[in-house]
Design a protein around this nucleic acid. Structure first.
Lengths: 227, 227
DNA sequence: TTCGATATTGACCATTCGGTCAGGATGTTT
DNA sequence: AAACATCCTGACCGAATGGTCAATATCGAA
């Protein structure tokens, strides 16, 4: 269950050049199917058979493309981490807190909406104790949080927002936005909908932005249009 | 994967009377072990072998007590739902919004802290599309939410808080509190701790209460001690 | 001590798991 | 057409899966 070094899988090795259309399509299909199955059942609970069926390919073919179950899983996690890392990559103390926080909430919400399966895959991994992501959490992601936490602190010092613990605030935003992907089944069951519409998502985003910004004492243009 | 009616399992049937000490202890041990394993790996990913090992019993004995994997799982879910249902069971429009909301956040936080495995078990179930809990979500829980939503609306009408969409607010509180159980691995990895102390939990609870109450325009005694 | 009920568990079963491999299909280059 | 490399997949493997069952062990009541 640790990550270790890739054991030189037989197939699927840097065929970026000699790629056919079929290969690309199959690979895409497998990744999409695997994301669904892993998200739904977790690493152990997912079976290559189920993934193959959803991808419309024989199991052997999946292994031919991906080498191993573990390799496939790691690849999916890495793809999700890339999407994640692209979030809010360049902010500085000079930026407007209201704008940045709203952009954060909005982009995080969109990430959950655009990639619900990937979001759930990530959630399942963390839920299981993050066996494959320990290193990432204690390294990259920790630095990411620290850097943004310092900016939030400086905003507080300048009186642009309340002096709240920045890390708890970041967690609050993460959890609130992630919720609508990870707990989709619950949200839909309780609200009695088949799916969340774009309008729903926009409404929720507005709600979260308003409550969280106001809750942290961030001066938002919406609240003080003439100030 | 649907719930259906229990198929009259062979063993473990209303032995509430003729119970020995051993039975009680074994049952408790099995349930605790199963909760851990199901929480970590989900329903499909969990194995009776692993549960039996963690409970210090042979696999056959686990089946003797619990009848089947499915039965064991459902029993755990029901136990968790009972704990959940006990939350905030009696509130009325006459109550003080600040007090009620703080009590909600605090008790939900304590539930996640006291039963982290159960909390993660529930999360895994929802993550997988809630195959066993559809009925509960669309029935009991939905009513629970509706009832509280109406009270929140009335508070807003009376000007005791901002007119926010109550359901989104309830989801916000759920997600923010649940986060510290479900994403514990992430929280610990990022904050660099081995575990969250009581003091940490108290600090987080205070933070959440302050931000959310302020964010919804609820007048809290902490903010206006002389008002 | 005897005896019926309950508790316990090792052996076993059919099925599914991730993964291997030989060999045929396909396609590109000469 | 010949030769070569890549692609594809059915058959198969040992291990693990949830579950059954018969045999044994344990224990309270007679």
């Amino acid at each position: 269950m640790t990550q270790g070094s890739a054991p030189a899988e037989r197939g699927a090795r840097e065929q970026g050049e000699a790629n056919g259309v079929t290969r690309q399509r199959n690979e895409r299909e497998i990744l999409a199917a695997a994301e669904r199955v892993f998200a739904r059942h977790g690493y152990r609970g997912a079976s290559l058979q189920a993934i193959a069926e959803q991808a419309g390919l024989p199991k052997s073919n999946v292994l031919y493309y991906m080498g191993s179950k573990r390799g496939l899983y790691v690849r999916l996690l890495e793809r999700m981490m890339e999407r994640w890392n692209a979030l809010l990559d360049d902010i500085s103390v000079e930026d407007d807190p209201a704008e940045v926080l709203e952009a954060f909430i909005r982009s995080k919400m969109q990430l959950s909406r655009r990639h619900p399966e990937g979001s759930r895959l990530f959630a399942a991994e963390i839920l299981g104790g993050a066996p494959f992501l320990q290193e990432y959490l204690r390294g990259e992601l920790r630095d990411w949080v620290e850097a943004r936490a310092r900016i939030l602190e400086q905003w507080a010092e300048r009186g642009l927002m309340d002096p709240v613990e920045p890390v708890w605030l970041i967690f609050l935003i993460w959890s609130a936005t992630q919720h609508y992907a990870d707990f989709e089944a619950q949200v839909l069951g309780i609200t009695g909908r088949d799916a969340l519409s774009d309008a729903d998502v926009e409404e929720i985003t507005t709600f979260l932005t308003r409550v969280i910004l106001k809750g942290c004492g961030v001066r938002s243009r919406a609240d003080t249009p003439a100030g």
